[in-house]
Amino acid sequence: MATTNGSINGHSDGHSGKTIALHLQVWRQKNSTTKGHFENYDLSGVSTEMSFLDMLDMLNEQLTHEGKEPVAFDHDCREGICGTCSLMINGYAHGPDEHTTTCQTHIRSFSDGETIVIEPWRARAFPPIKDLVVDRTSFDLLIQAGGYVSVSTGGVPDGNAIAVAKESSDKAMDAAACIGCGACVAACPNASAMLFASAKISHLALLPQGQVERKNRVANMVRAMDELGFGNCTNHGECEAVCPKEIKMDNIARMNREYYFAAL
């Protein structure tokens, strides 16, 4: 055996940092037609260096050994960019840390013996699938309503033929950074998708490329929000507070302005 690659999978002590015990209350729901409930689980020896999802992996290993079915939860990149992970942790979308996705949340943010309540996103437009997994297809449908520039491949001008002021470009990028996780909807008492929709509308309204379809885009996306069962905005600001990518409510103001202009 080559000994020269360094042990990545095998740390001698198994953990670095200290370990704590946690009491978990996890939402279990067999499927969309069955009523859900909380189950209690105790987990000990949880390293504070672990990510929140590493901890759920550990719980699932324990459940599998006990012959029980593991907890279903959505996750993929585990580096805060794909937007798949989606947990309500102690009542906060993505948990206690500011501007941080569930997957980037670490156990060091919790204390020994703490009870952690873990629930799925709850919104009419995000129907449940199983346990902590919900269906966010409504976000794709919202983009389909107009969240794009209608250009086909080929026949476009040189990249530098379209000058964009750095300030507009930076602001467009701030809005475009949205990862589509749905925390804004989950945190909103009205389950509104205003922050998500307005981020896309702002991104394209701020750029010259988005001008041609500007009015139709906002009109169509706002109509789609209603049709998909999202609520309206009543300025609670929960969405901005939980957004892992720091998308600002300014975007909602811009969307409203765009909407009025589109109606004129």
């Binding site: 467009a172 990028m173 475009a176 750029l207």
Partner: peptide, 11 residues
Amino acid sequence: QCVAQGVPFAR
């Protein structure tokens, strides 16, 4: 192509 789609490249 990406610029035409509105990809916000650094400027």
